[in-house]
């Protein structure tokens, strides 16, 4: 554990809880992509199956349980409790275009051919692109609520902080997992456009709207 990873994890946690609280408080999931949330639920499920097979630390296990619960809680709020507020007309990204290539790639580039390892790798590839339906939705509606912008910024920062963590781990403990590093870089690049808008607009008190 180092400061970069801890900050990354806390940023990830903040993002997930921010979204949950936002939906709960406003009684609405308008502007949130249900498809991205479905992808994140698949990501957490396939990655954290190892809760049952390998123990790293209490910290890791608790975080995994929180991520899984919050993810399914978000799906429950979006597709059941506040379903009438779900803006499915603007959530039109075809997620099979992400699900299938990620699955194929996880069979091609993987550390070891075991079920758990392929599922873990799949979760890494899918996570890298899981935000695309949400970003697509923002670009279609041309705007995002400020709280949604904070959510996206925290979620994007998490993998950027993990990149610093991997650089640190490379020099301090010879850690080098190219699968997760390259996927993490791709994931962070996808947010760059959004980061720019967030810094130039949202942080100056303006609403995020596209020109």
């Amino acid at each position: 554990m180092n400061i970069f990873r801890l900050c990354g994890d806390l940023s990830h946690l903040l993002a997930i809880l921010l979204l949950l609280v936002k939906i709960w408080k406003t009684r609405s999931c308008a502007g949130i992509s249900g498809k991205s949330q479905i992808l994140f639920a698949i990501v957490y499920t396939t990655r954290y199956l190892d809760l049952f097979t390998s123990f790293v630390s209490i910290y890791n296990s608790v975080m995994k349980i929180v991520f899984l619960s919050a993810s399914y809680g978000t799906l429950y709020l979006m597709f059941y409790k506040f379903k009438p507020t779900y803006d499915h007309n603007h959530d039109s990204f075809r997620i099979l275009y992400l699900i299938v290539p990620a699955l194929v790639l996880s069979f091609v580039i993987v550390h070891a051919y075991t079920l758990m390892e392929v599922l873990w790798t799949y979760s890494i590839y899918l996570e890298a692109v899981a935000i695309m339906p949400q970003l697509f939705m923002v670009s279609r509606t041309g705007e995002a609520e400020t709280i949604t912008s904070h959510y996206l910024f925290a979620l994007g920062s998490y993998r950027a902080l993990y990149i610093l963590n991997w650089i640190y781990r490379y020099y301090t403990e010879d850690f080098l997992d190219l699968i997760v590093i390259i996927a993490g870089i791709v994931q962070t690049i996808l947010y760059c456009d959004f980061f720019y808008l967030y810094i130039t607009k949202v942080l100056k008190g303006k609403r995020l709207s596209l020109p």
């Binding site: 994890d9 890791n60 995994k64 390892e117």
Partner: peptide, 10 residues
């Protein structure tokens, strides 16, 4: 084959 990769991150 009991090869297992250790993943210690989230």
């Amino acid at each position: 084959e009991s090869f297992k990769v250790q993943h210690d991150e989230l």
